[in-house]
Simulated scan of single mutants.
Amino acid sequence: MTGIRPGPRNLITDIGGLKVGQAHDARVRTGVTVVLPDRPAVCACDVRGGGPGTRETDLLAADTLVEAVDALVLSGGSVYGLGAADGVVAALGAAGRGYSVGEGAKPAPIVPAAILFDLANSGDKNWGDRPPYGELGRQALAAADRAFELGVAGAGYGAKAGTLKGGIGSTSLVDDSGIAVGALVAVNAVGSVVMPGSDAFWAWPFEIDGEFGGARPDPRRPMAPDDWGAAKASPALRQNTTIAVVATNVALTPAQARRLAIMAQDGLSRAIRPVHTLFDGDVVFALSTGARPLAEPWALTLSVLGERAANCLARAVARGVFAARG
């Protein structure tokens, strides 16, 4: 691939100024992933699934007051997992981070979140009235670093991708000019990430340097229109969901970041079949650290960034499941 390649880590943290922290509870079989920018980052969101669970996504609209976020949270636990953001907010606020309205007022950390459903994965969910997610959020925030684990980790710890083990995946792309795009995803989809009767991922055409095993489909095998392969046989509402973050070091407005999130959703369509169903709560956040200007003509540059984000997200889905299977 001339002029563009994965970054040195092939992770979303190849975007300068971003860290990722993760924590899990093996007994409960669940976990939390936190994306932490060094400074507030412009953020937008696109929701495509029919059963989403989110926090503070309305705040990310282009016509609202606050344009940047202090962190993003991806969590297992369904509605209970939204409490992971409480722990992150409390810790950031104690450290003096957050939106400030003036001297003497306590800062309000802006921490949107999205959750996936892992309540039926046989982990011990008998937590009474004290779910573990607030503490898991604190632990994930404290662990934030440039390097992080893929596969059975963080928000993907208890996930299932179709009939396969789901998990956390991440990839990046950096071009010769230094423009960078990356993706992070927790894969818990109804749909299959592999082709019928094959170990080849639907995302195989986008693989770089064997990053998810190098398996290729058998060209002699016919592909029936409704053959979804290793999809969940009996999906239930709100029991699935793929949640993701894409990021770039290019300066974007909230409206431009929203377009980046919309285009990035196509990466899920390239990697999961079926996707965006009523049984999923698919959500993609887009972050801009603003380190580099948006080159003119800006509309063309943004379109290129969106395509790269979709590419990264498709690869991240396959990479996460491949790591979880390993």
Results as ranks from 00 to 15, higher is better:
Leu305His: 07
Ala324Pro: 15
Asp282Ala: 05
Ala71Lys: 02
Val32Leu: 02
Leu287Tyr: 11
Gly77Ala: 08
Ile4Thr: 08
Gly87Lys: 01
Val88Ile: 14
Pro219Ala: 13
Ala244Val: 01
Arg48Ala: 10
Ser198Trp: 05
Val35Asn: 04
Arg238Leu: 05
Gly267Pro: 07
Tyr133Glu: 02
Cys312Leu: 06
Gly210Pro: 13
Leu252Gln: 02
Ala94Gly: 11
Gly229Glu: 04
Val32Gly: 00
His276Lys: 10
Ile12Glu: 01
Arg29Met: 09
Trp127Thr: 09
Gln256Asp: 04
Pro37Glu: 04
Lys232Pro: 13
Ala230Glu: 09
Phe148Gln: 01
Phe212Ile: 01
Gly178Leu: 09
Ile243Asn: 03
Ala186Thr: 11
Ala147Thr: 14
Ala144Glu: 03
Gly167Asp: 04
Lys19Ile: 08
Cys43Asp: 03
Thr2Glu: 08
Asn249Lys: 03
Ala61Gly: 14
Ser234Tyr: 14
Ala108Pro: 11
Asp209Asn: 13
Phe148Ala: 05
Thr2Gln: 08
Pro254Phe: 02
Ala147Arg: 14
Trp127Phe: 11
Ala231Thr: 09
Ala91Asn: 04
Lys125Gln: 09
Phe212Asn: 04
Gly214Met: 06
Thr242Ser: 02
Trp202Gln: 07
Arg258Gln: 12
Asp124Ser: 07
Thr64His: 15
Leu18Cys: 03
Ala224Arg: 15
Ala90Phe: 10
Phe148Met: 05
Thr33Met: 01
Ala26Cys: 07
Arg39Lys: 15
Thr171Gly: 08
